[in-house]
Design a protein around this nucleic acid. Structure first.
Lengths: 214, 214
DNA sequence: CGGTTAGTTGACCGACGTCAAATTAAGTGG
DNA sequence: CCACTTAATTTGACGTCGGTCAACTAACCG
């Protein structure tokens, strides 16, 4: 029974479903490995069925920006030109359904697929724009609050697991690890969230968190 | 003789060319008007044939982020869902070729058009990612230097015209108008650029500008 | 040529970054 | 299951870049 559909693929469901239909090849990666590298040729699209992935871009002097985090149901490596502009690494053990980019790029002859791919691309852009807004115009507190909110919304359980470490959070939010840490502590002092260990927390007051995330 | 092709449409040329082919309707807007508004329905795509446009997003408390600037040859309002997520305003008198979104969205039946639209979408995403990197991980000086470089690269002449004011630059770069101003003055003191009036400048030392833009 | 608007400059401040030390949680072998 | 080890995170002290507020000045417009 436990096919890929039964476990609630949400965010990019239609595209993922169709990738499966296109006979994606199942592939697994352990935690902490590179799936593809910045400036490498982009031949494959990865439909993530379990685990979590980050995409990163590194400046010449070592400053790092995380482009996005991906979870079950997301397509990775779709929205790119002939070369990848980000690297992608697993944050945990992952399983993918892998297909050739060429087989799903526009005018595949399958109009349903075309629309699904277009939609996936659109959402990728939308997420990037939302992220942009946050980096440009919000305080550390707003960023962290919003981030925790988003992660919590991913999980349906009250106890939330962060798949990434503080450095990843920092590089995603355009902050330092210390600022992230301090801000999390602050939110905890306000009894808005409660951390159990480093990677687990619980939202105590949603309304307050939402207000801060504004 | 002066058809739309003769004036060097660069950035999104293929898509623009095809929009023309699709019998876009010519339309003009004066300087400083809204083309479409955030949360409005997105029915039309605007191919910009002359002038300049900015897209903006405003937070509830008035903070503003500029998503992008668009110039001759760019498509505006393409990469969006059913509703616009940004407003678009003219920075100068503009002329557009306007087509229905529905007539160019994927699986139009014209494979050349499909690829061109896909490509335009991809580039929009790419530009957004580049912008993101800058907001997340660079200093005011790097941002301003890069910005001036990019604008200068648009124009092929030595004397460069900024189509936007300082506030627009600031809201694009995630800075305040004062910081932009100070940074520009600084670059001028270093004899890297020279301003003649507020909206015209000349790059004096490209190598130095490039190094700062890192 | 004066008025108006946009931009610049200065003084000061606060949020976030930096560097270093302390702490905690996750492993690991006994 | 517990002490020990190690790496990740937190906390503290302090510095700096960019923001804020206000006064000043330069470009553009009739």
């Amino acid at each position: 029974m436990a096919n890929v559909f039964s476990i609630g693929i949400e965010r990019n469901s239609p595209a993922m479903a169709l990738v499966v239909k296109q006979l994606g090849v199942r592939k697994t990666f352990p935690k902490g490995v590179e799936i593809f590298r910045q400036d490498e040729e982009a031949d494959l699209v990865y439909g993530l069925t379990s685990g979590a992935v980050r995409t990163t871009r590194v400046l010449s002097d070592g400053r790092r920006q995380i482009g996005n985090f991906y979870y079950r149901g997301d397509l990775i490596g779709l929205a790119t030109g002939p070369l990848h502009r980000f690297s992608a690494e697993t944050l945990a053990d992952c399983t993918f359904l892998v297909v050739k980019r060429s087989s799903i790029l526009p005018h595949s002859g399958d109009s349903e697929l075309d629309s699904a791919i277009w939609e996936a691309m659109r959402r990728e852009l939308e997420r990037t724009q939302e992220h942009l807004l946050f980096l440009g115009r919000t305080s550390a507190c707003e960023r962290v609050a919003k981030f925790l909110m988003n992660v919590a919304l991913q999980n349906s359980t009250a106890r939330v697991t962060l798949p990434m470490n503080r450095q990843d959070m920092a590089d995603y939010l355009g902050l330092t690890i210390e600022t992230v840490s301090r801000t999390v502590s602050h939110l905890q002092a306000l009894e808005i969230v409660e951390f159990m260990g480093w990677r687990h927390f619980r939202v105590m007051r949603w309304d307050a968190l939402e207000r801060l995330a504004a």
